[in-house]
């Protein structure tokens, strides 16, 4: 079977909306409902965060959601149980995002086999070094047809972007040079030219902008310079406010995807 991320990008190249949320937040058993709501929404991709005690790359909103999720009792065993039957209702590509230590302690091979068993299509581990990927992750993920998505920054050197693009599967995740998650609002002007430099070195993968996307305005800006964008912190904030996930998630993604009328 074709990997769902590849299938998505094969039929749709532009305006990709990826939504990130933390597993087990706001309540332990919300994972399934949020996932189903996203399936019914206009989101194209779903990233589920594995909560970690010390999330170095994350800003306050995602940090807090991780701590709440851990207090709720979320862990990888439980997450895989919650995702066990997701493919009955969810057809969209699903990725897990987290920190390498969680995967190491779970067992690298066991982790990927569980991912494959429940139908997870891709993995994002921001602190996984390229060399470590090649040594311990590449063989098993290729065997199981799981995509490992790498991150690049707008200041990553062209030579390195080429290596990361080559190793990356599904897409490439683009960050700015000043961005723990949720830290930046909008896409600064000078970023546009930097993105075109990055694009010159990317030949294999679509590029999703992975920071600073709060809503409709930033999302449409991102879609002008890349294949789409990821919303994380702003979505977590929505979940914190929401009393009706189905309705609010559908509304949120629909507004984000509404084309801005250019004056």
């Amino acid at each position: 079977m074709q990997n769902r991320i590849d299938a998505l990008f094969a039929r749709k190249k532009q305006d990709i909306l990826s939504i990130f949320f933390t597993a087990g937040f706001p309540n332990l058993k919300d994972t399934g409902l949020i996932l189903e709501s996203l399936e019914e929404s206009e989101a194209d991709l779903v990233e589920i965060g594995i909560p970690f005690s010390d999330p170095l790359g994350d800003g306050p909103v995602i940090q807090d959601s991780s701590l709440v999720a851990l207090k709720n009792g979320m862990n990888l065993n439980l997450l895989f149980q919650q995702l066990k039957d997701m493919r009955v209702t969810v057809q969209k590509p699903v990725l897990l995002m987290g920190y390498l230590n969680s995967v190491m302690q779970f067992g690298i091979e066991k982790f990927y086999r569980q991912c494959a068993a429940v139908g997870v299509d891709g993995i994002i581990l921001p602190d996984l070094p390229l060399e470590e990927f090649k040594m311990y992750h590449q063989r098993i993920t290729e065997e199981l047809n799981i995509k490992v998505v790498f991150l690049v920054s707008v200041d990553t050197k062209p030579e390195r972007i080429k290596q990361l693009d080559e190793a990356s599967g599904g897409f490439l995740y683009l960050l700015s040079s000043n961005s723990t998650t949720g830290g930046v609002k909008g896409i600064p002007e000078q970023f546009h030219s930097k993105v075109s430099v990055v694009k010159n070195s990317v030949t294999k993968n679509p590029l999703l902008i992975g920071f600073g996307i709060k809503g409709q305005k930033e999302y449409s800006q991102a879609c002008e310079i890349a294949n789409g964008a990821v919303i994380g912190s702003a979505f977590i904030e929505l979940l914190t406010r929401s009393h009706n996930f189905r309705k609010d998630i559908a509304g949120f993604t629909s507004i984000v995807k509404t084309k801005l009328i250019k004056s």
Partner: peptide, 19 residues
């Protein structure tokens, strides 16, 4: 040279800090 003491050490940092 790779930054390890036996199996310990290395540099497990987000890409932004790679440079």
């Amino acid at each position: 040279e790779q930054g390890y003491y036996g199996s310990f050490g290395g540099a497990y940092v987000p890409e932004i800090l790679f440079n």
